[in-house]
């Protein structure tokens, strides 16, 4: 196995362009599981730990190499809440948001927040330079994304006006260190518009636009409206049954969780 250790984004992209089949390694918390289970045996690994600028955190531009441990302390409340639910302290010290974006698992803990914040994924290649892809264009399916073979993920870029009223919650069968059964992020902007994003209930993180429309602008929704909101969320998600949960539970829990987060946002 070949192992490359580029010192810059440009160098990393050049190596990737020269060997499009090479595998990117950031924290390794997804890749090493695949390797250990024998599902992946990469011939060429590009380690990104030495690319310092990837680990740069700004409120409007989160470097792909920023770890969950760092994000636990960040100013985006719901992202920090999501970061706390990732694995164990050891995993959070190693795993990165860029890895979450690259793996593109439906259960990725950081993805509902990116969807609600309307993030763009910044990618870089030596031939085309920097390109920004909106989150809903970037995540294309279960563990599939729009990253080209010669590109590396460099950052999640955020609009200036990410609502400060934002809440995240995640259902897992145990109290910590668990893969998401359903996760949700709700944001409320200054005009009262509501954004609702969910994870683990569709091939990609999704926004439930009909449900959002129902409650946007409502500062004091009735019980009937809240119930309709929950029902609409349950109807809009597209979950499956697998060994972690059932479609029926995920639908039900999506509505419950979204409603609870909405109420938390409205109470702020």
């Amino acid at each position: 196995m070949e192992f490359s250790r580029p010192a810059s984004t440009e160098e990393a992209a050049a190596i990737k362009a020269a060997d499009p089949g090479a595998t990117i390694l950031a924290g390794g918390t997804d890749l090493m599981v695949e390797v250990n289970f024998g599902h992946a045996s990469p011939d060429h690994v590009i380690g990104l730990r030495r690319v310092d600028d990837l680990a740069d955190y700004q409120d409007t531009r989160i470097g792909a190499g920023v770890t969950w441990a760092r994000l636990e302390e960040c100013s985006h409340r719901a992202l920090a809440q999501a970061a706390r639910t990732v694995g164990s302290p050891q995993i959070r010290a190693a795993g990165t948001i860029g890895g979450n974006i690259g793996t593109a698992s439906p259960a990725g803990d950081g993805l509902p927040w990116l969807a609600a914040a309307e993030a763009e994924i910044e990618v870089y290649s030596t031939t085309r330079g920097t390109r920004l892809v909106s989150w809903d264009q970037f995540f294309t399916g279960v563990k599939q994304n729009a990253l080209a073979d010669d590109e590396v993920i460099t950052a999640a870029v955020l609009p200036e006006n990410v609502p400060s009223v934002q809440e995240f919650a995640k259902i897992g069968q145990r109290s910590a260190m668990v893969i998401s059964t359903v996760s949700a992020c709700v944001m409320r902007d200054d005009e009262g518009s509501i954004r609702v994003a969910l994870g683990a209930v569709a091939p990609t993180p999704i926004r439930v636009r009909q449900a959002e429309a129902l409650v946007s602008g409502q500062s004091n929704p009735s019980e009937a409206l809240l119930e309709e909101f929950a029902r609409t969320v349950s109807a809009e998600v597209k979950p499956i049954t697998d060994h972690r949960s059932t479609e029926a539970y995920r639908r039900h829990a999506s509505g419950v969780l979204a409603r609870r987060l909405l109420e938390r946002c409205l109470a702020q």
Binding site: K170, G172, R174, L257
Partner: peptide, 16 residues
Amino acid sequence: PRHFPGGTGLTTTGAD
């Protein structure tokens, strides 16, 4: 809240 059902997932604030 980590000691509520749902733990670190913050699924409840305690009322449920």
